[in-house]
Design a protein around this nucleic acid. Structure first.
Length: 429
RNA sequence: GGAGAAUUGUCCGAGAGGCUGAAGGAGCACGAUUGGAAAUCGUGUAAACGGCCAACGCCGUUUCAAGGGUUCAAAUCCCUUAUUCUCCGCCA
């Protein structure tokens, strides 16, 4: 949610910023008009209420003195009717205001490249170029490796659930578990995050605060006849942990990490990444969430992105970092870095982490605030989130990058202890 | 899932249509006292929205779980929902 004052006081700038994100100017103009109307109605209503409160006091006074208050009561009946009418109108206006306001994306940070699509994203850095040739000439895609070894079963996933579901069998299941344990251990012991296990179902208010609702309902699984949704990412329960609370400045920054399944309907992505672990309805992800003061949030974003990259470096998986353009950023983000891992069989980099600073966008929707030590003033915190990392995609990257000519897969050194000493994954069959 | 009880500010807790943003404690902050501390005394102790202000602030409206209703007027009466506790059932 944007700060309405920004739109009121600096309309041109807000409109221009939103235009970069594909919002039409008419929409903002309408918002400006209706916001003005809203404030007029509020003033009207409040004036009448003030009058009513005063007369009500007089009536009480008279009653106590056993005087007649008939006349005042009579005139107040009219005023009350008037107040009701104005409040009803106000309600409609407020609904339209929030319909528009809650549908507007966050304003991009000034450092974000302006563009319309992912083609306008800008590469920032690369790591591990020298490792890229490792698998040799005709690298197999990870789903073939997994099926050939008998450790990934997409067929039965589709039979028992639906397409885009999978069974991990034997060494693959162990690898997935090894990976998220390794990631959690690194983030908690080395990077200072507090480990959390969250609810996997959350209510509408939580989905609203992080920005998924109301605009992106079709992307998630909702439970019928319940005010509950399967989380599309642990970002939702982690960021909502302090919803409607006021922290003290000394509490910040807060670092949270959680491993959780993530559920996504993938509506509208039919035909994309239909095979393999890249795009499933259910996958594990180790999530990083930070709450920070506004003056520190961009430093925290850099650090968080490094924390995610560090996992790939420890796994010796080549990657690059890109900054998303204004057209490719998520709804809530002010700035987003994507980390893309090298996938040999596709001869390209694929997203494995996305680290965003939403500034006060989510905090405003969820009333996540803190009190300044100095002044005692209350401000919105900045919230950040990033994957550290998507576990299924990491499994895919390991299978492809660590495949060997005989069809087996070497286990990355750092994972061997987590795999009970296993150094090579060979056929389960 | 069935039956009953509860939900008031940071916490405990009064209040039972008008004098209640809310008694009384506790906590916390500041000040006095002290060599310093404890004790004691004094003062203060919410948020949202709207208006005014360069700013410190000031004014108004709202808020006693949430939403709706009755009334000139609701913490207080009525309805719906949520949460918590107790008993029964079921269950890892």
């Amino acid at each position: 949610m944007l700060d309405m004052k920004l739109i009121r006081n600096d309309f041109e700038k807000a409109a221009e910023q939103l235009k970069k994100r594909g919002v039409k100017k008419e929409e903002i103009t309408r918002l400006q008009e209706i916001d003005k109307k809203r404030r007029e109605l509020i003033q009207e209503s409040e004036q009448l209420k003030n009058k009513r409160n005063q007369v009500t006091k007089e009536i009480a006074e008279k009653k106590r003195n056993k005087e007649s208050a008939e006349e005042a009561i009579h005139s107040m009946q009219e005023v009350s009717k008037e107040i009701k009418a104005i409040d009803r109108e106000l309600e409609e206006v407020e609904k339209e205001t929030s319909d528009i306001a809650t549908g507007l994306p966050n304003l991009p940070h000034e450092s974000v490249p302006v563009g319309e699509t992912e083609d306008d994203n800008v590469e920032i850095s690369r790591w591990g170029d020298d490792l890229i040739s490792r698998p040799g000439d005709n690298p197999k895609p990870h789903y073939e490796i997994g099926e050939d070894l008998g450790i990934l079963d997409f067929k039965r996933g589709a039979k028992v659930a639906q397409s885009r579901f999978v069974y991990y069998v034997g060494a693959a299941a162990r690898l997935e578990r090894a990976l998220y344990n390794f990631m959690l251990d690194t983030h908690t012991t080395q990077n200072g995050y507090q480990e959390i296990i969250t609810p996997y179902l959350v209510n509408d208010a939580s989905m609203f605060a992080t920005g998924q609702f109301p605009k992106f309902k079709e992307d998630v699984y909702e439970i019928e006849n319940e005010n509950l949704t399967l989380i599309p990412t642990a970002e939702v329960p982690l960021t909502n942990y302090y919803r409607e609370e006021i922290l003290s400045e000394a509490d910040l920054p807060k670092y949270f990490t959680a491993m959780s399944p993530s559920f996504r309907s993938e509506a509208g992505s039919a035909g994309r990444d239909t095979r393999g672990l890249i795009r499933l309805h259910q996958f594990h992800k180790v999530e990083l969430v930070k709450l920070a003061t506004p003056e520190n949030s961009y430093d925290e974003l850099e650090k968080m992105t490094r924390d995610a990259e560090d996992i790939l470096e420890k796994l010796e998986l080549p990657y690059r970092r890109i900054v998303l353009s204004t057209g490719d950023m998520g709804f809530a983000a002010a700035k987003t870095y994507d980390i893309e891992v090298w996938m040999p069989a596709q001869d390209t980099y694929r997203e494995i982490s996305s680290c965003s600073n939403t500034e006060d966008f989510q905090a405003r929707r969820g009333m996540i605030r803190f009190r300044r030590e100095e002044s005692g003033k209350i401000e919105y915190a900045h919230t950040l989130n990033g994957s550290g990392l998507a576990v299924g995609r990491t499994v895919a990257a390991i299978l492809e990058n660590y495949q060997q000519v005989d069809g087996s897969v070497k286990v990355p050194d750092v994972l061997v202890p987590y795999m009970g000493g296993m150094e090579v994954i060979s056929s389960e069959k």
